[in-house]
């Protein structure tokens, strides 16, 4: 069984002189524990463990793109649309995902299986277009690859 979130957060905080330094890793763990997003209770738990207000935690969490303040699907598909990927057909890749999943960027499929997002650079500029699926990068993705990827993710 995993350690209680509060214990884990406090263990991280001990590595820093200021508890505020532990907010980012703490939020990341809290997000993992809460099904990929940060409900208000998660922000309260982190705040409680670090001696910070939930408002402060929300301020931090809402600043960073990889924290989600609304529920996400079981699989998270993030398509980079920044410059390098954009030059190499990222818009087509994104549209292919929209077609296959029948959602717009930022939306979750009605069955809760997928959330599709268009994101800024995720650090794979040498291998455009980069698509992050549940935080694992797929490199050199083209629009033509998308139906296969979705089928694979659906377990087909």
């Amino acid at each position: 069984m995993a350690r209680p979130l509060a214990d884990e957060v406090r263990a991280i905080a001990e590595q820093y002189p200021e508890s505020t330094s532990a907010v980012l890793p703490a939020l990341r763990i809290a997000q993992e524990r809460h099904g990929g997003w940060l409900p208000p209770e998660a922000l309260e738990e982190v705040g409680e463990a670090l001696g910070l207000t939930p408002a402060y935690c929300k301020g931090v969490a809402s600043f960073y793109d990889m924290f989600h303040l609304a529920p996400v699907g079981r699989r998270l598909v993030e398509v980079c649309t920044n410059i390098c990927c954009g030059l190499r057909g990222a818009q087509d890749v994104l549209q292919a995902f929209e077609r296959e999943l029948d959602v717009r960027p930022g939306e979750t499929t009605p069955d809760g299986a997928f959330t599709l997002r268009a994101v800024e650079c995720i650090g794979g500029c040498g291998w455009p277009t980069v698509v992050a699926i549940d935080d694992r990068h797929r490199l050199n993705v083209s629009a033509g690859d998308v139906p296969g990827i979705v089928q694979e993710l659906r377990g087909g």
Partner: peptide, 14 residues
């Protein structure tokens, strides 16, 4: 606190 980022930033409570 300020929530969100850039032009979307707004002042809010929890």
């Amino acid at each position: 606190v300020a929530v969100n980022r850039g032009a979307q930033t707004m002042i809010a409570t929890f």
